[in-house]
Amino acid sequence: MTAGMLTTILIAMLGGAIRVSTPFMFVALGETITEKSGRINLGLEGNLVLGAMVAYGVSYETGQPWLGVLCAGFSGVFLGLIHGLICSLPRVNDIAVGIAMMTFGIGVAFFFGKPYIQPSAPRLESLPLGNWSDNPALRSALEINPLFFVGIIMAAVIWWMLANTRPGVILRMVGDSEPSARAMGVNPIKVRVLATAAGGFMAGVGGAFLSLSYPGSWNEGLSSGQGLMAVALVIFARWNPLRCILAALLFGAAGAIGPALQSVGISQGYYFFNAAPYILTLFIMIASARSGASAAVAPGELSIVK
């Protein structure tokens, strides 16, 4: 392997990491909000797929991709609200409801998404940030979608709100100790439903990125577990929105290995590298489970770490 090929691979991985990481980032941020309230929503895969379909459909019908992004977010709120309300009933298991919402969300997306598989909808324009360079590979790697930056800003805002604002403190209190929240006169159920809805919104927007930017079309094989991997990623990021960005980039880079190698003509093992993000997630879960640093910051009411 020559130095030139290595550079090409690294550049392709950089571009791939930025592209692939964006949906991970949104889902992970959404799941962080939900889990900070003490609930886990495993159904965000459904939000992601439904969001992708809604965004594409709205963009096709109206010609307004950003309106599609917004509608995708609200489709996520819809699923999040159902999850949040059902889990507020006694004796209902939030993990099982997550699996059910995943099935339901994907089913609804496939049902209404049939007419949008063929047509081409207006996409979200990417920002050509690499124009200063002569290297075509670098230029295409730095074609970055504005949603990537929106995600980073959101991460910073969520991080700041969790640490410094009244809603942030209430959210963390509900997630750490339901009795204390009740003693303070906070209704934990209301907070959790809102947190699940907010998390659903973020995941829906993540789905919009899938269909309107990269890969940039709507089909039934669009998402393959990104929504679920993002849930594992939140544990790895220790419920910290800023660490979610780094974790998402890491996952994006893992997902970009296969295509990056293919870009220099190494297609051997392409299907094996397809498994790389899943294997990485599994190892990350093994490493972060029972880790003291992770347990110390985990929301106390979370069933997954109890």
């Binding site: 409801v97 994907i106 089913g107």
Partner: peptide
């Protein structure tokens, strides 16, 4: 569309888990 059965299955799943609260 062929996803009709999938929607029905998803709906059954969600309603079923909701009904567990009645146990």
């Amino acid at each position: 569309p062929d996803a009709t059965i999938q929607v029905l299955q998803g709906l059954i799943f969600v309603v079923l888990l909701t009904s567990e609260t009645l146990t």
